[in-house]
């Protein structure tokens, strides 16, 4: 079960300085901002030089670093909802939360087409498994990762059904796009029909999987209704207020190399990998995107700022290794096993 925030994360503040071209963090241009439903906007974030953005898979999310005030930024995670065949841009859909402490309000009220925005590397805690049948259950803005899963299921020719609940029809995003799927989609506005009917979960198809994203009460209801299903067949993406993310650090930091007894300073616009190389301690690397795992280095002390797509949340929290092509430091100093 994943625990990252899809749409309602807490504030993580830090000093803001624009970062351009730093691996693991990209500077993308807001190319479109469309109102999809009441309180929901979709952003299209394009690579300004028409280069590729790092690959992602259905269910993945990206971090947006938002300059919500003159002194600080907040870091927010949003599920990707665009088209993977569009290799030069990401799309996210964002709900304006009345209780927001800055992130969604900033996106809705201040962010404008043409603005540059700092974006992290995609990660996926909610990947789509192989299966013979998918039951997709979405509540409200929880539809975003499900949209990419539906696209994948369609391409794979796998049987699926979407059960989509929302407060009102007008508040539900993507209804136009979903219309093409006809009776594969059940739209369930609460003001018309009450709570989502989960009776279909009584039947358990062979090699079926449930993918559910939405607010906590929906997830609990689904967990209860699917009690007869094996736990691995029912997968949730939670909106979690507790974000583990550390601030995006832009100041230089120090590396202490335990084996070679050297100290190396990593500047704002260089990677740990390049700083190590300049200091005469080159580390073998390959993909330069935090995907392949070649440049793994042991961390003996200090807290890395993980920007790879390899470690899961538990592995990140151990802080005992990092991928130096993209990852940096939260702490002033890292002691590396080099």
């Amino acid at each position: 079960m994943s625990t990252h925030a899809t749409s309602l994360p807490v504030d993580v503040s830090s000093a803001y300085r624009p970062t351009v071209g730093r691996p693991g963090i990209q500077s993308l241009r807001v190319a479109r901002k469309d109102l999809l439903a009441d309180g929901v906007v979709r952003l299209r974030l394009e690579e300004p030089n028409q280069a590729r953005v790092p690959d992602w898979t259905p269910g993945a999310h990206i971090e947006l670093v938002l300059p919500t005030s003159d002194e600080g930024t907040v870091s927010r995670h949003y599920s990707l909802c665009g088209d993977r065949w569009d290799a030069h841009a990401y799309e996210v859909a964002v709900l304006n939360e009345p209780n927001s402490r800055g992130g969604s309000r900033y996106i809705h009220e201040e962010l404008a087409v043409g603005d540059m925005i700092t974006v992290g590397t995609p990660r996926n805690n909610f990947p789509l498994s192989q299966a013979k049948r998918f039951e997709f259950i979405a509540g409200g803005i929880g539809i975003t990762p499900i949209m990419t899963m539906i696209a994948a299921a369609e391409q794979l020719g796998i049987d699926w059904h979407l059960h989509y609940g929302g407060r009102t029809r007008a508040s539900m995003a993507f209804l136009d796009e979903l219309a093409q799927y006809g009776d594969r989609v059940t739209i369930w506005p609460q003001d018309e029909l009450g709570h989502l009917n989960l009776g279909f979960l009584n039947e358990m198809p062979e090699d079926g999987r449930v993918y559910c994203c939405g607010p906590e009460p929906l997830l609990n209801a689904v967990a209860g209704a699917a009690a007869a299903w094996p736990t691995w067949a029912v997968r949730f993406e939670r909106f979690v207020a507790a974000s583990l993310d550390e601030p995006v650090r832009t100041e230089p930091f120090e590396l202490e190399l335990a084996v070679s007894k050297k100290t190396v300073t990593v500047g704002t616009n260089e990677t740990v990998l390049s700083a190590l190389s300049c200091a005469g301690v080159p580390v073998l690397a390959s993909c330069m995107e935090g995907v392949c795992g070649t440049c793994e280095v042991g961390v003996l002390k200090g807290t890395p700022e993980h920007r790879d797509s390899l470690l899961n949340d538990a592995e990140r929290a151990k802080n005992d290794r990092m991928f130096v092509c993209v990852s940096r430091a939260v702490s002033d100093r890292l002691v590396l096993d080099l």
Partner: peptide
């Protein structure tokens, strides 16, 4: 190709990770 490639690749990548 993706998306068919996604799930099995993810599985094997974990099994064959540097860790």
């Amino acid at each position: 190709d993706p998306p068919e490639h996604d799930a099995p690749r993810e599985v094997l990548q974990e099994i064959m990770s540097s860790r």
